[in-house]
Write a protein that binds this DNA or RNA. Sequence first.
DNA 1: GAGCCCGGCGCAACCGGATTGCATCTGCGC
DNA 2: GCGCAGATGCAATCCGGTTGCGCCGGGCTC
Lengths: 146, 146
Amino acid sequence: MDRRPLRPAAKAAAARRLIRAAGERLTAPRAAVLAVLLEARSALTHHEIEATLATTFPVDRVTVYRVLDWLVALGLAHRIPGEDRSWRFGASRAPAHGPHAHFTCTRCGTTVCLEDVAVPPAVKLPRGFRPQKVELTVQGLCAACR
Amino acid sequence: MDRRPLRPAAKAAAARRLIRAAGERLTAPRAAVLAVLLEARSALTHHEIEATLATTFPVDRVTVYRVLDWLVALGLAHRIPGEDRSWRFGASRAPAHGPHAHFTCTRCGTTVCLEDVAVPPAVKLPRGFRPQKVELTVQGLCAACR
DNA sequence: GAGCCCGGCGCAACCGGATTGCATCTGCGC
DNA sequence: GCGCAGATGCAATCCGGTTGCGCCGGGCTC
């Protein structure tokens, strides 16, 4: 949030660096998709990612899906289930991120990650249930839609 | 959670009463769907609802969807977006329920509503954003899947 | 209790996001 | 430069959800 927007080229370099650092195979689609995520100020749907790439470096629909899954598995991105039954993806700030919070605009669907959120309190679960991940979702209107 | 299971018949009567009380048209499918939700100890997918009804009172797929939407609009049920890209529905305990918490099992997908959860702390949003609803989702393993 | 009418129901077709199968291509270790 | 495991692209497919439309029946009227 509120990070200063670097030039796309810088993001592209960062994307390549991240993939290399992960010891994974560096391919053009992977770098391109990750760069898009790094540049975005909000979580993007698969469709938005594909549309963004279309102008600069067209990547097959299916490949985008696969790259996204791969990024999620690698921990470089995370996937947010939306109200509209489609995934949204955002670059992970921290390598391993704990409790996570998101804001979704009920009007335009824009989803952003809230970085500075107090860790939600320990939740009381039914007997025998084991918590693994806690997610806080806030719905409302974004600044543009008000 | 942990409410004692009444007999199906009792739930069916309760369902009819709720629909009547809402001043809405009472039909067999509506009562049947609502009864299923009232009986369930967890939030159900459309598929589970349909399957449950199949043995006792088969209802058309589309009708189930429409009844569910109608119940949600009426406030008698609420809809939870799942990790598997399908809605889950649960009967609303309180007429108008504020902050809501859910637990989803990452293994079997079972989703339950957590009733007694401390209201999440006020979340700090970006400038100009207006919150409307807060949802807390806990993922982990349910007692059966551990 | 019978008739009427509006809204709910069932059927079938459809939509779009996501997934799978498979042949081809390519990053990168040697 | 070579080779191969793994990534890409294309087409077909799946599946949860939605829409259009004609028929049916809940509940109000008389």
